[in-house]
């Protein structure tokens, strides 16, 4: 009983951490531009796929990961530079449609440059499972949780302790005032896309040893991350993390105790419930500080 519950919990937290990283990306871009970037899932896919193909090209895993994050960041910056940022004065809805177009383009590009097959990565430090009260935890799960925690702490530090981080928040709160204190809001937008892409790619690299990826592998992860961001309150940093864990755990429990056939539906049921009872998400109280 307990062992079974723990097993579902571990797998929920692991996948939830990935959703949290994706959700943070959604929130950062949303804060900078009020755009919901539907290409966020493609950054996740690029992270995994690029690492796979860099390794196939002979790079060791750590170097392949770095190159993959760099490729995703370039994709993020290009999306801002050539698509979203070019359309000055366009409505937010137009910009969101542009990101949907970009996501289709990136998937197509990945299927051409790489291929249409499933790929996996070796676990970072072996597959010897750790036993805990009858349940097992893989070392890769620990990597996922550890890296997510470090990333979350770094982001918290950046947004609350550095002038540039505060400038990004200030731009989210009041773009005009941000410009008037000398913040280059265009640069903030670039930085947001770069940061969101890096977070997505890190998530993609971490999860590929657990769940194989392919050129369309970012679609579902993107939607789950989006659900997590909505559940936690779009634009809220802690909300994104808590939202990610909630969606991950709900999904694992639902799949374990109810039916795995509806696994993907649980996230969307959660969105509907949250939006019905708390329209601005768990943490989306107006007037609180948003990351």
């Amino acid at each position: 009983m307990l062992a079974e519950f723990l097993q579902f919990l571990f797998s929920g937290i692991t996948v939830g951490a990935i959703y949290a990283l994706v959700a943070l990306g959604f929130s950062i871009i949303y804060n900078a531009s009020h755009v919901i970037n539907f290409a966020q899932g493609e950054f996740v896919m690029i992270g995994g796929m690029a690492t796979v193909f860099m390794m196939a090209g002979g790079l060791p895993l750590p170097a392949a990961m770095l190159v993959a994050v760099a490729i995703a960041v370039c994709a993020g910056l290009a999306l801002e530079r050539f698509a979203v940022g070019q359309s000055r004065g366009a409505s937010v809805v137009t910009l969101i449609i542009i990101t949907i177009g970009a996501s289709i383009f990136l998937r197509g590009l990945a299927s051409v440059v790489w291929d249409r097959n499933f790929h996996t990565l070796p676990s970072f430090s072996g597959d010897e499972p750790i036993r805990l009260a009858g349940a097992t935890l893989t070392p890769q799960s620990l990597w996922v949780l550890g890296v997510t925690l470090v990333v979350a702490v770094l982001l918290f530090w950046f947004f609350t302790r550095t002038l540039m981080g505060k400038a990004m928040l200030a731009t989210a709160h009041n773009r005009l005032a941000a410009q008037l204190v000398g913040i280059n809001t265009r640069f903030v937008l670039m930085l947001s896309f770069g940061l969101a892409a890096a977070l997505g790619a890190i998530g993609g690299i971490l999860i590929t040893p657990i769940a194989p990826t392919y050129f369309e592998g970012g679609v579902m992860l993107g939607l789950k991350g989006f659900s997590a961001a909505i559940v936690g309150g779009l634009g809220h940093g802690l909300g994104a993390i808590v939202g990610g864990l909630i969606v991950g755990i709900a999904e694992a429990m639902g799949a374990g105790y109810i039916s795995s056939a509806y696994k993907d539906a649980f996230a969307f049921v959660l969105i509907l419930l949250v939006l019905f009872f708390m329209p601005s998400g768990l943490f989306g109280v107006r007037g609180t500080e948003r990351v």
Binding site: A167, L169, A170, N174, L176, G182
Partner: peptide, 26 residues
């Protein structure tokens, strides 16, 4: 060139001190 805009436009959710620190961003 610094401007105090119409309607004040402070960064509402941020602390008074953070608002001031951001004033020195440039």
């Amino acid at each position: 060139i610094s401007q105090v805009p119409e309607g004040r436009q402070v960064f509402g959710p941020m602390s008074v001190e953070d608002n001031l620190r951001l004033g020195a961003f440039s």
